[in-house]
């Protein structure tokens, strides 16, 4: 089968190539998906650039990408909740990475039927960003009338998080640049802060939850805007100590300034590792079918133009997700 593979780490144009590889084999818990559409995410770019070699060592060449939507054409003996012919979507686990290919084998726990009211391309755009947002805001137990600041509302994670938080009845502040203000408002955000002309810290004050999707100084600044006893969830900031332990870093300490700021505010700081989860995707399916959440797609590229799709992703200017139509 044809697959877009990372052949070496480095610049995107030099590091990707189409290869003919063998079709994945299906284990007892797996389904084999004929890929209709895949989506690419910033992590895919970071992997290609080699920025994650230490954390996620890959045997090269490796097929790229995690998000997929397609049709189940084969299943393992222990798979009972999914049938051949089902239209599904998934964020595949690390060890099964490689959705930019004609077929991908995925463990059933990571797979859900796709929403029936959207296309394969739209469905492929949802898993990674949707699971990241859902699992972060679920950790924060976001509920009706909570106030939440979601950074980078025009990004894949941010645009999903806004809609998810609104579906839960929260009051949503979000930040974005001037050119994105209007369409981010249309996602339902109550107060869209144009970071080019406004200081978000003087607008979003004492919020119940900050969802940090930017990291760097924004992680620390989160404690300036979160209420006393509030929650800061981050998907890009420093690891928290419990998460670090999970990775075997027993003597890891939270950076001093974050620990101090968190303690002064008596606020929780939690780093969220998105994990593949078919049950969560099934929750997202319902939200999409009920129009609580709409997929936001910047562009759909044909498979043959996948490298151009990555170049577009690299600009960091995509409004929503970049999708690749495979078949």
């Amino acid at each position: 089968m044809k697959a877009l593979q990372i052949i070496k780490y480095g610049e995107i144009k030099d590091s990707l190539d189409f290869n003919e590889v063998s079709k994945p084999t299906v284990k007892a818990n797996d389904v084999l998906i004929e890929v209709k559409a895949a989506a690419i995410n910033p992590i895919d770019k970071s992997i290609i650039l080699g920025n994650l070699q230490g954390m996620l060592p890959l045997p090269l060449p490796s097929t790229s990408a995690y998000d997929v939507s397609g049709v189940v054409i084969e299943k393992g003996d222990d798979v009972s909740n999914i049938e051949i012919g089902d239209l599904v979507y998934s964020r595949v686990p690390q060890e099964q990475m490689g959705t930019l290919a004609e077929f991908v084998a995925v463990t059933r726990e990571a797979v859900s039927k796709k929403p029936g009211n959207i296309s394969f391309e739209e469905a492929a755009s949802l898993p990674l960003a949707g699971l990241t947002a859902l699992q972060s805001l679920e950790y924060a137990k976001i509920k009706k009338n909570d106030s939440v600041l979601i950074h980078a509302g025009s990004g894949g994670v941010g645009s999903f998080a806004i809609q998810y938080a609104k579906a839960k009845g929260a009051y949503v502040y979000t930040t974005t640049s001037t050119s994105n203000v209007e369409w981010v408002k249309e996602l339902g955000a109550d107060r869209v802060i144009d970071y080019k002309t406004e200081d978000y810290k003087s607008i979003a004050k004492d919020v119940d939850v900050v969802f940090d999707t930017l990291g760097k100084n924004y992680s620390l600044e989160s404690f300036e805007v979160v209420k006393q006893g509030g929650i800061v969830v981050s998907v890009v900031g420093p690891l928290d100590e419990a998460s670090a332990k999970m990775f075997g870093m027993a003597d890891y300490k939270l950076p001093e300034e974050i620990a101090k700021a968190s303690s002064e505010k008596e606020a929780v700081y939690k780093f969220i590792f998105m994990h593949p989860n078919g049950a969560h995707l099934n929750d997202i399916k319902s939200l999409v079918e009920d129009e609580k959440i709409k997929p936001i797609i910047d562009n759909v590229y044909p498979f043959s133009e996948s490298v151009q799709a990555f170049a577009h992703l690299s600009t960091g200017r995509a409004k929503g997700k970049i999708v690749i139509k495979i078949s």
């Binding site: 209709k36 939507s69 239209l87 029936g116 009211n117 959207i118 296309s119 394969f120 391309e121 469905a123």
Partner: peptide, 10 residues
Amino acid sequence: SFCIDNNGKE
């Protein structure tokens, strides 16, 4: 009863 089009929509 429903059909599914080529784009995967019901």
